[in-house]
């Protein structure tokens, strides 16, 4: 296994004022790998993914993407390179239609004269395609997202990431507030993604969700990495013990 990792974060430091959120964290994700990122509240999970998705810049440390050093000055940079993040509460815009949500920031345009108009027809056709790609069948693409269930919303966000050929999908607590059935569906989505060659980072409190689908599990506590295990090397019980001990 001498391959170059898809993404590699080395010695990441980040503090906010006097609060140290991350103190020298190393994490890497290989091609075709599902990484579970776990830890208690305030462990630094959110900060770490915000750095990886371009929302924050690290105070120290570097990010390598397929071996090359990269710097993200905004979420746009991360998206352009192929990192898509599905934030807990910030994945979709409730009041906007499903179709419009899928294309926020990446709207297709047709040039008529010097200006580009929204290509509504293409948006409708392609969003249908995107949803079919994750086997999500919704009644109306014009309906506002707020009318969907929690699981359907995650499905739309994942469909969007898939449609835009994301290489690394970061899911921030995707099973929060979901029913058991819907959580299961999300886990299936992630497994499907892997079979299609998309790596993912799965952030959660719920070890029972992440353990079955993860290839590798990284444990954070108080801004430090306190463990990194291949799935075979550990179990839910061992992980729980590690997290709660600290």
């Amino acid at each position: 296994m001498d391959e170059v990792p898809l993404v590699e974060l080395t010695n990441i430091h980040k503090s906010f004022g006097r609060v140290c959120a991350l103190e020298g964290v190393d994490v890497s994700v290989n091609h075709n790998e599902v990484v579970g990122l776990v830890g208690d509240n305030g462990a630094g999970k959110s900060t770490l993914i915000k750095i990886l998705s371009g929302v924050y810049q690290p105070d120290q440390g570097e990010i390598r993407w397929e071996g090359k050093k990269v710097k993200f000055s905004s979420p746009k940079d991360a998206i352009r390179i192929g990192i898509e993040t599905i934030h807990q509460e910030a994945a979709l815009v409730d009041k906007m239609s499903i179709m419009r949500n899928i294309f926020i920031g990446r709207e297709p345009v047709v040039k008529i004269g010097p200006v580009g108009w929204l290509d509504i027809k293409k948006m409708a056709k392609e969003s249908m395609k995107a949803l079919e790609g994750v086997a999500l069948y919704l009644r109306s693409l014009e309906a506002p997202v707020e009318e969907l269930s929690g699981g359907q919303r995650q499905g739309v966000a994942i469909a969007r990431a898939m449609y835009f050929k994301t290489k690394l999908l970061i899911l921030d607590e995707p099973t929060n507030n979901l029913s058991v059935k819907e959580s299961k569906r999300i886990l299936e989505f992630v497994t499907d993604l892997k079979s299609q060659g998309v790596s993912s980072i799965f952030i959660t409190h719920n070890l029972y969700h992440v353990y079955p689908i993860a290839d590798k599990i990284v444990v954070l506590s108080h801004g430090r990495k306190i463990g990194e295990f291949k799935k075979e090397e550990t179990s839910v019980d061992k992980l729980t013990e590690l997290i709660t001990l600290k």
């Binding site: 998705s53 905004s74 979420p75 998206i79 910030a90 994945a91 815009v93 906007m96 920031g105 108009w117």
Partner: peptide, 29 residues
């Protein structure tokens, strides 16, 4: 009307007003 309903900028306006965090995460300023 055209700008709001039929341009990229219009789509950004709805997203920024509806959920600024989501808009930002998707690369809209």
């Amino acid at each position: 009307w055209i700008i709001l309903e039929r341009s990229r900028f219009g789509n950004w306006m709805f997203s920024v007003g509806g959920n600024p965090k989501a808009a930002r995460a998707l690369g809209v300023n």
